[in-house]
Amino acid sequence: MTVGLPPSLHRGGQPLTRLYPGWQASARYRAPADGLDVLSLHHTETGQEACWWLSSDDEILACHALALDSHWNGQIMEAIGPALQQFCAALLSGETPLPDDGTGLHDSLVPLTSLPSVAQFQLLGLWFQAAVGTRLRLLSPASLPDDDGIRPDTPTAPFAPGRLRHLLDTQPVGPHTMTTSPFSGRMLRAELTMPTEKGVACRFSDEEDGQTFYLFWYTPTGRKAPPKDRKPLFYHPATRLLLGDSPFLPLVPVFLLSWFISNPHCVEELRHAHPFRLEDYGVGRASALWEEFIPATPAPAAEKQEEAGQNRTSFPFSSELWVRSSIFRAGQAAGLPGRERWKKSPPQNHEKTTDAGHENHDES
């Protein structure tokens, strides 16, 4: 008999005395329903995990929470449903304000968090399917209309298809991940970077519209980061819209919920998150932008000190590629003179001087 396997374990009146080769029973837990237990199992070679749902008298009821009958489903939903609904509204969708005490929100889910991760994930999937699953809108990027107008009768409503296509070009770069809002078009910075079991997700909020959404990059097994050509999956909780090409698309909300539950510190991170600001990346200091293109004369130590909250090496504003592609193009579109044109024909009030209090823009 496998180590840890309950001696009285049975199914359909037949005793179960052994498991498939390589599998072992790890531990037994109380499930969030009276008379229901969870038996966790693992494979000694692959590390794969599984769980069985047992009655108090050791009968195997199901090998997955989704296979439990309506009696047990009802008891589980009654036990964890209200806490998950509150948790979802505050963290996943951002519909309600963050709680003053983040630990209190997580404490209400102790019956769930005390279970092994595989059992937690199954119960989250069970709850999400019952609460939201039948109303999810799954959309493939290939089905986006060519018309960029916003109409109530389109599958992408309330989003403009063009903005969604642009959103799917976003690449993950950790805490510096930025994208454009599908609501207002403004630049947004990730509030949270969330490494999950199947990939990495970023949480964004557009304060102008009061909307929260997620981008999720699926990472194949064995890779530490998603492929560079991988398009993200888009999830907007308020409209239950999931956009992307992946068999895991319907599970993205469950991956996110699982991460939120396992990371209580996220409440404090969200409380201190602030909107995207150019000054956080050193923009506004012309000399810092030009240093990548021309040799700079060593400046006094006082002039080299960085302003608080600014990082001249932060992604993406100190990169030569960003400067060339964004600042230069924006200047040309606005009719501003380029650097060469400035040198050849400077404005009348631009004097070549090195006096104190003036900056010499011309090369000697």
Score class of each variant (00 low, 15 high):
A50V: 07
H106Q: 07
P337H: 00
H361I: 11
Q129H: 13
G149D: 06
F234E: 02
D209W: 10
F87L: 08
D362K: 10
R285L: 12
L321D: 13
P15Y: 04
T212C: 06
S318D: 14
L243N: 01
L91W: 04
Q305C: 13
S70E: 15
R277S: 15
V283W: 06
E45W: 12
I76T: 00
A160L: 06
D100C: 08
Y281N: 05
V267R: 00
F260N: 01
Y29I: 04
A201P: 03
F204I: 03
V110F: 11
R28Y: 08
P227M: 06
P264G: 08
A119L: 01
P226H: 03
Q211W: 03
G47K: 06
E303Y: 14
K352P: 03
L54T: 03
K231Q: 15
D100Q: 11
P145N: 02
G244Q: 02
S246K: 06
D148I: 13
P195K: 04
F216T: 01
T154R: 07
T134L: 12
F121G: 05
R203I: 05
T179L: 03
G12Q: 06
P111H: 05
E269G: 07
T354H: 11
F260M: 10
L241W: 02
P7V: 10
Q305L: 15
S8M: 15
G222V: 05
T44H: 13
H166N: 12
A131H: 06
